[in-house]
């Protein structure tokens, strides 16, 4: 029997705090790893092809968008660009939808065990990131087969930064939405609507050139394009990976790259404030 006091938990109206923090003892990382493993294992346990779905779904979508865009709009957006856009969009869309439920679907855990609540949306996003990276392998093979890939060192060095930016954005959104969903359960419906609107204003099945052409008829709209964080991220992703794609540097397009940091910062603040009342509302 030791007199070692170990962890000290202080719980007051500002919320519960444990010192030393689970991040310093490594327990936080163990939990994170276990939760990500649960997400990944649980997601595909019941399905036959398992992980293959992670790749098949965006592939089908890319095919559908390419075909219909050509038939309906008569626009010739290169298939490679649609591919990059759809794979990246799939990552964000899944983080938004899955991340939103990260806390509410773990109500039992949140009500009964004290652990850093941020691990829930974070592990959901991390699991989707793993899935995205797997689909990127397929994406690269396809791009190489189609001949649209650009193999430049600069591009492959900048690409992880784009993925990091996209992940920060997704995590920020997951934090905000998962906290909001505890307090207001109908955010689910609202988010569904907003997500489809976001899909159409983002360069998923089209690219910046296409959007610029549309905007050209209405001068003054152009800088507003960069208000969408996905405009800069997807354009940057294409610039890294595809032949003939470049990032059009301007103050607006550069500022747009700061979005992920802003959203993540807001997400962390919002989540911190909201998490005190999670157990009361679940």
């Amino acid at each position: 029997m030791s007199v070692d006091l170990g962890a000290v938990l202080v719980n007051d109206p500002r919320g519960a705090r444990v010192s030393p923090s689970p991040w310093r003892t490594g327990a936080g990382w163990d939990m994170f790893r276990a939760l990500v493993a649960r997400e990944l294992k649980g997601r595909y346990k019941g399905s036959v092809v398992g992980f293959v779905w992670a790749v098949l779904v965006p592939l089908f979508m890319a095919g559908i968008y390419t075909v219909f865009l050509r038939i309906l709009a008569g626009q010739r957006v290169a298939i490679e660009r649609v591919l990059v856009g759809v794979f990246a969009w799939q990552y964000t869309a899944q983080c938004v939808q899955g991340g939103m439920l990260a806390v509410t679907s773990n109500a039992n855990l949140v009500k009964k065990v004290l652990f850093p609540r941020m691990l829930l949306p974070a592990s959901a996003v991390a699991a989707h990131l793993v899935q995205y990276l797997v689909s990127v392998v397929v994406q690269t093979v396809l791009l190489a087969a189609l001949g649209g890939a650009e193999w430049s060192l600069r591009g492959w060095l900048a690409w992880p930064l784009v993925v990091a930016g996209l992940t920060a954005l997704n995590l920020g959104l997951a934090l905000i939405l998962s906290a909001a969903h505890v307090h207001l359960r109908d955010t689910q419906h609202l988010v569904g609507v907003l997500l489809s609107a976001w899909f159409f204003v983002s360069p998923v099945m089209y690219d910046l050139e296409f959007a610029s052409a549309v905007v050209q008829a209405r001068p003054g709209w152009a800088p507003w394009l960069w208000l969408n964080p996905l405009m800069s991220l997807f354009t940057a992703a294409r610039a890294c990976l595809l032949k003939g794609a470049a990032y059009p540097w301007s103050w607006a397009s550069a500022a747009s790259l700061a979005w992920p940091a802003v959203i993540l910062g807001v997400g962390v603040l919002v989540f911190r404030r909201a998490q005190r009342h999670f157990a009361d509302l679940l």
């Binding site: 170990g6 962890a7 000290v8 938990l9 007051d12 500002r14 519960a16 039992n108 065990v113 005190r276």
Partner: peptide, 24 residues
Amino acid sequence: LVAGTITPTTGRVVARGRICSLLE
């Protein structure tokens, strides 16, 4: 409140040592 899952409205509680609850 002792486990730290519920945030108190008033006052505070301090627990020293590793807590585990069989309530979970």
